[in-house]
Amino acid sequence: MVAALGQGYRAVRWWFRGVLGADAYDRYLAHHARAGHDEPPMSERAFWRARTDHQERHPQGRCC
């Protein structure tokens, strides 16, 4: 029972983080590892700065 609840909580948390975009840095790291770059990945702080700078140039619409 407790285990099932824990699993459910983790699943909801995983989903919500994904929808919010809170997992962007983890995904960037995974992408970086997969792509096999030579340089080390950006630090967390640098990544989020780069991300908002990117959003600055590529605005996303929000619907009505």
Binding site: V19, R27, A35, H58, R62
Partner: peptide, 22 residues
């Protein structure tokens, strides 16, 4: 690693919904 990124379908469903609904 930025805007082109394969995303789990269930997460993307929520993401897409949040973008279209208001």
């Amino acid at each position: 690693g930025q805007d082109y990124l394969p995303t789990d379908r269930r997460v993307l469903y929520g993401h897409h919904f949040a973008a279209i609904a208001g």
